[in-house]
Design a protein around this nucleic acid. Sequence first.
DNA 1: TTAAAACCCTACTTCTTTGGTAGGGTAATC
DNA 2: GATTACCCTACCAAAGAAGTAGGGTTTTAA
Lengths: 135, 135
Amino acid sequence: MLSKKTQYAFRALEMLVKNYEQGPLLISEIARKKKIPLKFLENILLELKKDGVLESKKGKGGGYSLLLKPSKVPVARIIRVVDGPIAMLPCVSLYFYQKCDNCNEKHCGLHDIMIGVRDAQLAILEKKTLADLIV
Amino acid sequence: MLSKKTQYAFRALEMLVKNYEQGPLLISEIARKKKIPLKFLENILLELKKDGVLESKKGKGGGYSLLLKPSKVPVARIIRVVDGPIAMLPCVSLYFYQKCDNCNEKHCGLHDIMIGVRDAQLAILEKKTLADLIV
DNA sequence: TTAAAACCCTACTTCTTTGGTAGGGTAATC
DNA sequence: GATTACCCTACCAAAGAAGTAGGGTTTTAA
């Protein structure tokens, strides 16, 4: 399951997508409208900024805005930044790979199954973008 | 990510599948061979028994064995019993559904995306069975 | 029939992650 | 130069994951 933090991230991004190229939004405004704890949201937006998805402007008239075109940011990217691995096992993760103990990947049925699941997930999550958050 | 507990479950099931219709296996034997903490494994096998996947025999010569034909038990079932929901959001889970706060499912892009992911996952996890654990 | 084998059950502990709070620091702009 | 608004560090509580302890109960085979 995606963490609550990640769900907050998507809710915030939804607002930012709608406001794309129309100036920055205040953290406080997003927090209020989307009912996200202010300081928690601050932290989330900061992470997304460090990853290059968002940009921010300080001072009066500042705030956060989307740096990239919504249709250029896959949903998978957001999940990886905020939540971490997408795969169901460490040994099949592309970005967070870890060898499993006591499991020879060459002869592990579970491994093979989870590779398939991962690819099926990514087929969607890499294709769908922030633009798809708006219906 | 699947919990360690679930990974233990699959490793144990692997042994039980290989021994299908050849008598019961001791918890202690499985624990030793698969390097799973004994008491922890005990708990896992008990859950699988309560779900009807395994059966057990007490007393001397007893142990655990697979109750159902391996090819009749989808991997998804094991995950749900031991780990819980498969879906990435509570509001798209088939077996553990929960409404999300502040999200109108009719007009939620994320919801739609995650429905797609869930279906893609299940297409595999409901088709693959315990028999596929053996390669 | 009885003792040992082997599962059954409850409770507890420890560690990590998640979700959230507090409070001040720093940069930009009016 | 004061105000606005983001930036950063540290901390805290609750929940879940992982594992431990220890005794209870049923079965079966000698």
